[in-house]
Design a protein around this nucleic acid. Structure first.
Lengths: 193, 193
DNA sequence: TCATTTATGTCAGTCATGTTGACTTATTTT
DNA sequence: AAAATAAGTCAACATGACTGACATAAATGA
């Protein structure tokens, strides 16, 4: 890596308080705190590297990150409907359709008509799909485990809270419900909303 | 948003210890801990929403997320070389070239030959570029300030540590150096590595 | 000095993944 | 029976990645 080696121009660098210690003016101008800009960059770097290892694996098998996302959510939240997936990924039906079709055609995902509403297509990973999902998740889980370890055991709850609160107000409840449902309702027979 | 409403199948949900309390086997199989998978998903949702507001602004002016990334790093780390940017973004010269050219052509960024090495093109934002960078950063800073606030004031250092440790080992030193250099060395005359 | 390396820029083509709009089919709801 | 909903599909298009090849200017080194 190239060494960037820049000069420092930053003033004092607040580290402790945020909104608590901000007056109304500062609250409207969060850009005043350079520590927040550090977090903007760290989030970029963290996510960049979070996706690099799976991306490499995906490339070998002719898939992309879009396939990973679909496979992950179907695997973890088994029995998900297509509409749920669209809402999670915030992409269009057509975009999803392309990658989903490939995943189905190549035997990673199966579709099943809903029991109560047979228009719905409930999505499940096959054994093959679960294997790939696990293989893709492994480097990400290792990375997260390392980062939690390095930032202290007590950090986990605060990281989770922080990331949850980074989610749009409008979607936060849905996301937390999805997480509560957790490792998927494989074989669920529950009511599809 | 559609209500997903799934059934729970998850067992106990570890929350406290991570690697400290893991035996060697568990350390090699971090996928065993469902709380880590929650963080995988939260990171996806957080990043998804972190980029949504700027993306909307960008769309109005015919730019994309790639322009934002370039503009951000040039603005914050003024005097950056093209090679630095390639290394930060991990994209090819050709990919960068296209968006950089647009940013220069439309007066957001200026290039200046390096003083000690005149092959280098040092990049700076214009007033117009700074305005746009600030406008794009604002919703992201607001979101981060909110999330820090909601996860407790003492959380900031642990979030920063966590995100730093999410970065690839190989790049971690460079990233932390970049952050130390902080809000850019505008008008720097220092040695370009 | 001359050859090589480095930093940058650019042309041409390709691919993955997102977009809109329009339309079909099956099924449920009213 | 009509309308709404869930899903799938066709076509056309934009963005932002990629590779490979090549050009130019400037620095470096034998």
């Amino acid at each position: 890596m190239t060494d960037i080696n820049e000069q420092v121009r930053r003033p004092g660098a607040k580290t402790a308080s945020i909104a608590d210690a901000m007056d109304d003016d500062a609250r409207n101008q969060p850009e005043a705190d350079p520590a927040l800009l550090d977090l903007v960059e760290l989030l970029f770097f963290a996510y960049r590297d979070f996706t690099r290892e799976p991306d490499k694996i995906l490339e070998e098998i002719g898939f992309g990150r879009a396939h990973h996302r679909v496979l992950h959510f179907v695997n973890r939240h088994s029995g998900l409907r297509v509409a749920d997936l669209l809402d999670i990924l915030k992409i269009t039906k057509q975009s999803l359709g392309r990658v989903l079709k490939q995943l189905v055609d190549e035997g990673y995902i199966v579709q099943e008509a809903g029991k109560t509403d047979r228009r719905e297509r409930l999505l499940y990973t096959t054994a093959r799909g679960q294997e790939l999902a696990d293989r893709l998740a492994l480097p990400q889980l290792r990375r997260i485990a390392h980062a939690l370890d390095a930032s202290g055991a007590e950090s986990q709850s605060c990281i989770g809270k922080f990331l949850s609160e980074m989610v749009c107000e409008a979607d936060r409840a849905q996301v937390s419900q999805l997480l509560k449902a957790g490792a998927g309702a494989r074989g669920r027979s529950g009511e599809p909303a």
